[in-house]
């Protein structure tokens, strides 16, 4: 038997006539059980507990909080991301397994919101990672969050929520934006290009000058050390 893992996804679909039925079924299943990562990045996070608890109850839609990025599907960026947070958000995003979606809650993720002139916050989230759904408002009501999540579910079901493929296809662009903010020596320990190869998503924009710069600087991370 051939090892299915090694055949790129596109080819697999062509050879197996039942594959698209299976894919649709998978997409339906994925849209009905979204685990969202519990990372409270900004002040919008205060409206998330009401979404999940007794009154608005997101769990009836299959949305429930998850504590670790490895088991989560949705990364909620709830509000302004300062530069220090953005590094962690990107690292968290890269750690999530592949069909992953990003929801930008709050006006601050759209264009900087009321901190557009602040020296410490990153203004536009989609510069640094691909975003599926934006929910505007300062802060959005729980109903708005739930309606945004329903839009996301619909997008996943119809197979349109593929922003995570964007990240692999245009990795050089995103890395360039990140390096512009964090300096040319910025690196995460994740091997994005290797993952892109795994999913068969390498395009001519995956590798470029920024990834070359990254490889130049790529060295072993210093052993994790705590400075107390």
């Amino acid at each position: 038997m051939k090892n299915l893992e090694n055949i790129p996804v596109e080819q697999r679909r062509r050879t197996n006539p039942l594959a698209h039925v299976f894919d649709e079924f998978m997409a339906f299943c994925q849209s009905r059980s979204l685990f969202m990562l519990h990372y409270c990045t900004g002040c919008g996070a205060v409206e998330l507990p009401p979404v999940m608890t007794s009154r608005f109850d997101g769990e009836r839609l299959g949305i429930s909080p998850m504590v670790s990025p490895r088991q989560a599907d949705v990364l909620l960026v709830t509000g302004y991301v300062s530069v220090k947070t953005l590094k962690r958000v990107i690292l968290t995003y890269e750690q999530m397994p592949a069909p992953k979606y990003v929801v930008g809650i709050c006006s601050c993720t759209v264009n900087g919101g009321m901190y557009w002139q602040s020296y410490a916050t990153a203004k536009k989230l989609s510069d640094y990672m691909p975003v599926d759904i934006y929910i505007a408002g300062c802060m959005p009501r729980p109903e708005a969050v739930i309606s945004g999540m329903r839009d996301l579910m619909e997008k996943i079901r119809t197979g349109k929520a593929d922003s995570w493929k964007d990240y692999f296809r245009n990795y050089d662009h995103y890395l360039g934006q990140q390096q512009r903010l964090f300096g040319p020596k910025w690196q995460t320990p994740t091997d994005i290009i290797g993952e892109a190869e795994h999913y068969g998503l390498i395009t001519k924009n995956t590798r470029g000058e920024h990834t070359r710069l990254l490889e130049e600087h790529q060295k072993r991370l210093e052993p994790l050390e705590m400075r107390l």
């Binding site: 300062s82 602040s118 410490a120 107390l228």
Partner: peptide, 20 residues
Amino acid sequence: LEGKADAGYLHRGFEKLMEN
């Protein structure tokens, strides 16, 4: 034995923003 707080993830330069 020892703990160290690491704040600053939510810093948005509030006091500077107010001056503008």
